[in-house]
Design a binder for these strands. Structure first.
Lengths: 110, 110
DNA sequence: ATTTTATATCGTAATATTGCAATATAAAAA
DNA sequence: TTTTTATATTGCAATATTACGATATAAAAT
């Protein structure tokens, strides 16, 4: 018990859940927004930007990277992080599906 | 420790995180997809559709409802659940922001 | 009135997440 | 080569999530 029963769901469902879960933390939202704001892939001053310790931010970055939402490359001493389009495109597919439904849905039952 | 430090983030960031977190489970993805498929707000046969126990599904429905992603109304004996446009519109705002950035982003640093 | 049907809640065990101090690693600067 | 700078990893405590059996609730059917 306590573990998500991923084996009962499709790969696509599990992947979408993983992506959403990775976004589901305010610090990780803040990281994504910061990466958008600074555009030019500025690296670890995210630590200065956010009110969390360096190890905690490192962990959040790792989760975003594992989910495929950001990429990180060594840039000399430091690491340059930026958004990974691939991950966000998968999310887009899902929400396109949802939004298309919602736009065409006429019955107002609830 | 162990608790998310929501007080350090904006309301919008926290709300977006809550929405994403609610979507971040394959069973809840499956519920959303099922509600889209059956359109007409068919209620608790979600329990027959998914390989999880009734209490577990009830709990997942509650989380989606609390996050503002689905609505539920009594329909005689049973409850009629359907998607809540409001919640998904908030998500749309966030991803529009992200996608606009990604489309215009030209620098390929990572 | 009793039973059935549909759903929610409680209690609890297993596991996962969050956050940080301490420490490791590894490249750059001195 | 030593020190500094940037980042990752480890270990651990606090808390949250997931799942389900048992039980509660409440309307519908009998």
């Amino acid at each position: 018990m306590g573990t998500t029963k991923t084996e009962h769901f499709t790969d696509v469902q599990n992947e979408m859940a993983t992506l959403a879960k990775a976004i589901g933390h305010p610090a990780r939202i803040a990281i994504i927004e910061y990466l958008i704001k600074v555009d030019s892939c500025i690296c670890g001053d995210i630590v200065n930007e956010l009110p969390l310790s360096q190890p905690t931010i490192s962990q959040h970055l790792k989760e975003l990277k594992n989910a495929g939402l950001i990429k990180g490359n060594f840039e000399g001493n430091a690491i340059c992080y930026c958004l990974n389009e691939e991950g966000f495109n998968k999310i887009k597919l899902f929400f396109n599906h949802v939004n298309t439904y919602l736009e065409n849905k006429k019955n107002e039952c609830c």
